[in-house]
Amino acid sequence: MVELQNISKRFVFHKENLTVLDNINFKIQANDFISIMGKSGSGKTTLLNIISGLCKPSSGTVLFNNSKPKGFFDNYASRFRSDSMGFVFQHFNLIPYHTVLENVVVPLKFSSLPPKHHKRLGLDILNQLDIHDKHHHYPHMLSGGQMQRVAIARALIKSPKLILADEPTGNLDDHTASEIIDLFVKLNEENHVALLLSTHDRRIIDRSKDTYSIENKCLKKVDTGDPVYQFSKSL
């Protein structure tokens, strides 16, 4: 679905070249459930942004559906993002002055779906996630878990093949986080949505199919059955 070939990303910071990611090769396929671990500042978000096409790599190639972007990188990525990806954020990033329903249908505003279908689709998704009764509320009236559900609903509205989530449980309490993780697992198993989650949450890592870690600017696959990993987990 998305493939990264020899991707490197460098930033210039105070006239110094900082390499954040170095020679990353990575592939996401349909129905994957991948979690990415890493310390804060290790480059998880940058990696997600490169995958989503929001950030241009310094070198290397990003393939969307096995093809290189044609023409202007930005608009091609934008279309691909709009059609195939959904996003969930740690801080939910709901638009404060839009109602729940309006927030959920925002991605449809950048699509070619006729406006008359927006409301019905939005309510359907909210119904699936069990928060349809809040559709006319504003985000500040909701709890953290409810806001994340709305954010997930928004990510799902265009039936994406891939959902990218940047620490989706980072701002939630244990109980709510578990509910949200269950929701992700359900989406992966029943709706066959590929998931790529950057996280510190062991529960997500345990339930994901593959786990990667960013160490020393490189992406490494983590064997969760490895005794060293199990030991570090028990600490």
Binding site: D74, N75, S78, I95, K109, F110, S111
Partner: peptide, 16 residues
Amino acid sequence: ESEMGLYRFFGATRLE
């Protein structure tokens, strides 16, 4: 500004 960034995530072009 963050709202503008959000629109980019959901498929808006820079011009939009």
